[in-house]
Each structure stands twice: as structure tokens, then as C-alpha cells.
Design a protein around this nucleic acid. Structure first.
Lengths: 344, 344
DNA sequence: AATCACTTCCAAACCGCTTTGGATATTATA
DNA sequence: TATAATATCCAAAGCGGTTTGGAAGTGATT
């Protein structure tokens, strides 16, 4: 059942039917009723392909997921972020287009997305320092919003980010207030923008108390359980081990916990751990009471908001970029406590 | 730059240019060269919206992700599965359309996807017993492939599944061979088809050795770390506790491990654990040597294959459904060992 | 030289919608 | 009552491709 057939059945022109369904004013209220009812009855839904061609809009948003050819890691926060963004798209009648491409092919993908008109805009994931995608997208005129920020980028751009620096600063201060002075950082890969900001927050916190940073207590790698385990095991074996860990994610935190327990130490008593919790639905930080003390910020909510920002941007391409900084909460769990006296 | 403009620049008709680019035979080799070169030079890419309308094909595959309104869990294997499927789509020139919808709205979503012509087919995720989606999709004539199977469904349908029954049967046998007789099952939600099959494999393994199943050793819940922890803690506190656990996922396995260690027991010595490992890229089961003994099957590879099956199906709607059963490997890690003598 | 079979190209219809530019009927205004 | 304004509807022209049904040219065949 298409527009024309429906129009014939109603004894109206396609024009009028189209207008009736799309809420244009130049159609009799009674006629509109009739049209709506018929559309319902015949189960009519306009063909999106035709709408897209006629309007020149894709009614779709692209997410380009680069698969790193080196370390083949799919970002664990991806599923929840997508779920959040997807909620927004469903609500607003947009489609979500996912392109999974080798990371050396990302440029071409954006160009093709643009020239084929497949999407109205894109979301940029996991920005790195001096991220080249910002210049590329600006150049080809593709609207975009970055989830995160790209330190070092000179062009203006729209973004939504968590205040990672502040989150890790607060976490550091919290540990310092508990009497910890040997605080380790188990960070993500430090070419990622968020990781840099977190490190900066950590360093800032230490500096404010005149504690010189100790590179043996600073670790950076992919946020896997194993990496967290290795980092913590290694640091706990130091002659002057840390009494607290600041950890980049729930998953690495589980590795850290394993190392702590393997060393015969007790979490929250001998060793304090604060993680960053993206509030992933399949990795809840405990049920009622949180397992880990954490800086928490829902990546799903971020997905919802970023998607909204992009749709706004597409519908009203204002010259001034949209920016939004979310604060992470610091939630207290069972993994932190006062620094052990013996080591203070 | 569109077809017409390109045709004018070349002094040819749009027909010829279209045919040249699409490899039709009725065009001079020399002319084709010229057209290809010009397309390259002017950076011409055909507008997908027009192609879709003209051909009546969506050149897109849909993935409908139901967000359960109750327990808001996004499937953790989702990201890797999507990554795998996405690789296939990129390779074959298809778009991947993701719809995130409340689970009570899934039906409507499929109908709309069909009547609007947004996709050529869909992948059905996470089938349950008697899954109603199979009848629905068959009824509305939407090509689909199920990732998994739906026990109880009477209609024929195409699917790709891991032999979950066999995997858990083998894992059970492996534990039995090690002398374990008190084997616990920490399963996923048992309205999910894969969970039922795993339980069946487990029960079959026990039955073959004349071990009656013990319901106090059978647990079923969402596959979270906390759920795994709770299940194991509870079972380990039993008067006659298990010496081995069969666990549905890496994540629940981590919870089980935590409970084991919290009970002062050692994994692989006092307690054996076998997990099912979906080979998620962000949750590797150890680096070089596996942490957990596991039944392993790459969900990413499954994604690649399911997507291929669907595209085949769309391009050649054969009457006989396509079926494919993958076997899981049993890989030996550090989490299993002979049953402790004292408890045997 | 006429006919036939290819080869190579093109004009025009079509996909299903939106949107422009009227046309017609109805009501208000002078 | 004539005219202007308004309400309501429609024909037709896109949107940018694909595809059908020739047409013209070329070389081979009779």
C-alpha cells in the first residue's frame, strides 16, 4: 500500500493525502480525519526510501566504529552508549547507521557517508589527542558531535564529555583525605583524550598536597582485566608499594582486585581502590551497595544526550558549537578505607 | 556531483554512465574506462537514497535490540557480535541499521521496518523458548536469520547457533573425569534458549554417570558479576558444597571466583570452574595462558557468519532454511584440577 | 546490395514520496 | 452585487538513480 493507492481509495490526490498525514494546515479537518483513519486501516506507512529521496534528508545518524587492526578491541562501553543513543533515535524517528571499518579506512568511510548522503550527521567516538577526524568532518561539511573531547584540536566543534579531570581529582583528594599518600594510577591508553584528562586530575590532586608523582605508580594500557591484574601485581611487589589505586574502569578494577587478593591483602582495609564506573548495565557495580568506590557517570545517558545534541545540530546548524560537560558522581563503596597505620 | 552532471561532463547519457559504472556489458570498454576515470576524478558516488528507491532494495540489514523494561540489561556480547556482523556488511556494501526499542514495542518495530522498506532483512538476537518473533517475521514476509535457536518453534527458519548442549556436556564430562561429583551450574536466565540447552547438556552429562541432579546446585539469573558471586557464595555455604562450577559467562565467572576466594579457597585446587567464553575482545580470558578453563566460541565470528547467511538469504530466497551449528572448543586454563581428595 | 546480428548508445518511464504553483469553491468585505 | 480573502484541493515537477524498449552504426552473411 503506497500513497497513490491510498489516495485513489480515498478519492483524493496524493498531495492532499501527504499533507493530511504530515500535519500541513491546508487540509480540511474532516478530510484529515478520514485520511488518518484510512492510513490506519490499510496499515499504510510511507516508504522511507522515497521520503529520503524527496526531502534530501537521510533521517539517519551514523556511528563509525573503527576496528583497530592492531589490538582488536571493541570498546566495552559501546553497547550501552549505543543503547542510549538508540533510545533517542527511536523517539525522534531517526535511524542509526553503524559502520564497522578497519581504522585505516575511517576517512574514506566518512567521505562515502557524505557523498552518498547516507546520514545527516555522525557521532565521533573515542577521540584521541589531536584527533584528525575533527578536521576531516569539518572539511567535508558533515555535521558531527564528539563523545569526549580532543585536546589539541584547533577547530571549533560540538562535544559532550564527562569532566574526567575533575572526577579523578576528586577521587585523588578523597584518597588523600583518607591518609593515603602512595596512590597508584591504573589508566587507560594515554593517547585517548579521556585518559590524559584523568591523569591530569590525578597529578593535580597530588600536586596540591605536594606529593611528587612517582612513575612506578603510573600505568597505562588497555582496560582489560588482565592488564589491571598485571599492573597491580607489579606495583604491590614494589619495595614501597601503593596503599591505594585509582583505576580507569570496572573491568580493570576487577583485575586489580584479583591481584590484591592474590597478594593476601583485603580490599577496603589493606588496599583502597577507586574505579571509574561507566554504569554499564551488564557490569553493575554491586547490587544495593556498591562494591567499588567509584567516580560514576552513565555512558548510556551520555549516548542519549549526544544523540539529542546531534539531531539539534542537524536541524539547526548554528555557527556556534554546542558543548556540554557532565560531572561524575563520587559514590562510596566498600573498596576504600583509611590508609593502614603501619604504612602511613 | 550526481549522475546527470557527470553524464553531461562526459557527453554521454545517464543511462550509459550508470551502466558503465555498474558493470553492464552493453557499453564499450573504452567508454567504460573514460566513465570510471571521470567518476574517480570528480569524486562521484551514487546517491544511495536514489539507488534504494529505484531498485526497491534497502541495501541494509536491521538489528532490533530490545531494551527490557524490567531489567535494563544490554547484552554484553552485543558489541562483539555487531562488530563481526558489521565487518560482513562493510565488505558486502550493506548498511547496518540498529533499532533500540522497548521490548514491548518490538513487534511494531518489525512491522514498520517492513512496511517502510527500511531493510532487506533482520537478524534476530537472543531467542527465547517459543520465540514469537519467528512467527511474526514469517507472517509479514521479512527475511531473517536467528542467532541461536528457538526451541518450541514449529515454523522452519534459518539460524546459526553454537552447540551449547554439547559444549556443556563436554565441560561436565571433563569435570566428572577429574573426579568431581558435586558440580554446580550457574546458568543464565532460563527462558533464553541457549541457557536451556546448556542446562540440558549439563543434566545429560550427570545422567550418563548416574548422578542425580541437585537443585540446590542449579542457579539461574542474569549473567552479572554480582549474580555469579551470590550464587557461588550461597552454594559454598551449603553443608555439602560443590567442588566445581559450570558458569555461563566470563562475567559471572569473575563473580564466582570472587566468592571462591572470599571463602578462603583456591581456584583450580579447591574449586574448579569452567566458564563459557564468548571470546569478547574486551574481556579476554587471560593473555597467553587462559585464566579459566572454558568452552569457547567467538561471538564475533558468529556475527560475521550470521550476517553472511542473511545476505545470502536476501539475494536468493530459497525455500529451504539455512542452518549452521558451530562447535565450541574446550580450552584448558588454570581454573580446573582434580577434585580434592577430602571431598571426593 | 540487401539482410542480419551485434555492438553501443539513448530517451523516457519509473520508484514513491514532497512541494511548488495554481485552480476552484467558499466566505468576508465593500 | 462585485470583489477580495481564505480555505481546500490538485496537477505536475522534482529528488537521483535504474531499467525498458528502441535506434543507429558496424561488420558479417547471403
Amino acid at each position: 500500500m503506497n500513497l497513490k493507492e491510498l489516495a485513489i481509495k480515498l478519492g483524493l490526490s496524493p498531495t492532499t493525502v501527504s499533507r493530511a498525514l504530515n500535519g500541513y494546515p491546508e487540509v480540511n479537518a474532516e478530510t484529515r480525519e478520514r485520511v488518518m483513519a484510512a492510513a490506519q486501516r490499510y496499515n499504510y506507512a510511507p516508504n522511507t526510501r522515497a521520503i529520503r529521496l524527496a526531502t534530501g534528508r537521510a533521517l539517519a545518524v551514523g556511528h563509525v566504529i573503527p576496528i583497530m587492526t592492531r589490538h582488536e578491541i571493541v570498546n566495552p562501553v559501546f553497547a550501552d552508549f549505543i543503547a542510549g543513543a538508540g533510545e533517542t533515535y527511536s523517539r525522534q524517528g531517526y535511524d542509526m547507521l553503524l559502520s564497522v571499518v578497519p581504522d585505516d579506512d575511517e576517512d574514506r568511510t566518512y567521505r562515502v557517508l557524505k557523498s552518498r548522503g547516507s546520514v545527516d550527521g555522525v557521532i565521533v567516538h573515542a577521540p584521541r589527542l589531536h584527533d584528525p577526524r575533527i578536521a576531516l568532518l569539518t572539511e567535508i561539511g558533515m555535521p558531527f558531535v564528539v563523545h569526549g573531547r580532543a585536546t589539541g584540536s584547533t577547530l571549533p566543534y560540538s562535544w559532550l564529555d564527562v569532566n574526567n579531570r575533575r572526577a579523578f581529582l576528586r577521587a585523588t583528594e578523597f584518597l588523600l583525605d583518607l591518609g593515603h599518600t602512595r596512590i597508584a594510577l591504573v589508566n587507560g591508553l594515554e593517547f585517548m583524550d579521556f585518559a590524559i584528562r584523568r591523569r591530569n586530575g590525578y597529578l593535580e590532586g597530588l600536586a596540591a598536597r605536594n606529593i611528587p608523582p612517582d612513575t612506578t605508580l603510573m600505568f597505562s594500557a588497555e582496560m582489560t582485566e588482565s592488564a589491571g591484574f598485571r599492573a597491580a601485581r607489579q606495583m604491590l611487589a614494589l619495595p614501597h608499594p601503593p596503599t591505594a589505586f585509582l583505576v580507569a574502569s570496572m573491568i580493570s578494577g576487577m583485575g586489580v582486585r584479583r591481584a590484591v587478593e592474590a597478594a593476601g591483602l583485603t580490599l577496603g582495609r589493606d588496599i583502597s581502590v577507586i574505579i571509574h564506573d561507566d554504569d554499564l548495565s551488564y557490569l553493575p557495580n554491586g547490587d544495593d551497595v556498591p562494591i567499588f568506590t567509584a567516580t560514576r557517570s552513565s555512558v548510556r545517558e551520555a549516548g542519549r544526550l549526544v544523540a539529542e545534541m546531534l539531531i539539534d545540530l542537524v536541524n539547526d546548524p548554528a555557527p556556534t558549537p554546542r558543548e556540554r560537560l557532565l560531572e561524575a558522581e563520587l559514590i562510596i563503596g566498600q573498596s576504600t578505607g583509611p590508609a593502614p597505620k603501619a604504612l602511613q
